[in-house]
Design a protein around this nucleic acid. Structure first.
Lengths: 158, 158
DNA sequence: GTACATCTAACAACTCAGTTGCATCTAGCG
DNA sequence: CGCTAGATGCAACTGAGTTGTTAGATGTAC
């Protein structure tokens, strides 16, 4: 274990620690309080390229920022409320959370695509959703939002 | 209650009762046993134009065909296994089930669209999904199935 | 029609993600 | 520094879905 292939990423410095300043800045932009759990959870989400469950977050933080699981739930819910993150319903009845793309200006989750990998189980966001899906709904159905979900092999498991 | 507007549909004859023969025929087409709970659950699904949760099914059958809730779960799971129905993950962490369209020949759930009504909460299947969505995935992602989910107003709540 | 082997139903107990209530604590402000 | 609204932590709860086990029903062989 001391000389494996991954010597560049020792577990003593989890990726989220480098995102703490960034997370603090984002939280300060809201009207709400800056607290340790909020910073840690947001930094954790910021360090990931895929969606994370409440358990994933709690697990990632347990070493340097142990947080009660109820607080993790509440912080994640708060992040969704203030528009920093969004939640994704998985096939395993577990909510997963992911940072919103700040470049996607107005309607952050009106039209959104996700990709769940059948191999590693992780869910990714695909941001450049086409404005018009060539899909004709039966008459009488008036859609306001669209969710597009792909399943298959992600770029890490290809 | 004796003279309300819905005199044409008395609660004494739920809609699923007229589907029992049809349900029996479909179950006989499988290699498995024909049992009362399977017939009742399938007839119930057949009588609906929207997806139903295990609770919806159990509730609908409680008067004429009371079935243990575990049995409802198992029958619904079996219906998915043998390809008669499919399950839909809802936003409320509840599985909903719906009969497969028998005309959609080979791959019944490879590419599928659902519509969830924000007003009544019901989920409908939209069967004529286009074969090609003009959506370009980031390189490295290889999709095998697609789920398309709309939210808005259904034809009953328009 | 009856007996048998096997599959299925019912019941109870359990798992687990997520929620609620409440006492304690803390961030932000005067 | 001291106050107060709001956040955290803990424990207990909820509710969908699962598992194990026994009793019962189904289809088949005789």
């Amino acid at each position: 274990m001391t000389s494996n292939a991954k010597t560049k990423a020792p577990p003593e410095t989890p990726a989220y620690l480098s995102r703490i300043a960034e997370a603090e800045a984002a939280i300060r932009r809201t009207a709400d309080r800056l607290t340790q759990p909020r910073v840690a959870v947001l930094a954790c989400l910021m360090s990931l390229d895929h969606a994370a469950s409440h358990f994933d977050v709690a697990q990632a933080l347990v070493k340097h920022h142990p947080i009660d699981r109820v607080t993790v739930y509440r912080v994640l819910e708060w992040l969704v409320e203030v528009g920093i993150a969004h939640r994704i319903a998985g096939d395993d009845r577990v909510w997963r959370f992911m940072i919103n793309d700040p470049t996607a200006s107005i309607a952050p989750h009106q039209q959104h695509a996700h990709f769940t990998c059948n191999a590693c189980g992780q869910t990714f966001c695909l941001d450049d959703v086409p404005n018009k899906l060539n899909f004709r709904l039966p008459s009488g159905f008036k859609p306001s939002t669209v969710d597009l979900k792909f399943r298959g092999r992600c770029l890490h498991c290809a």
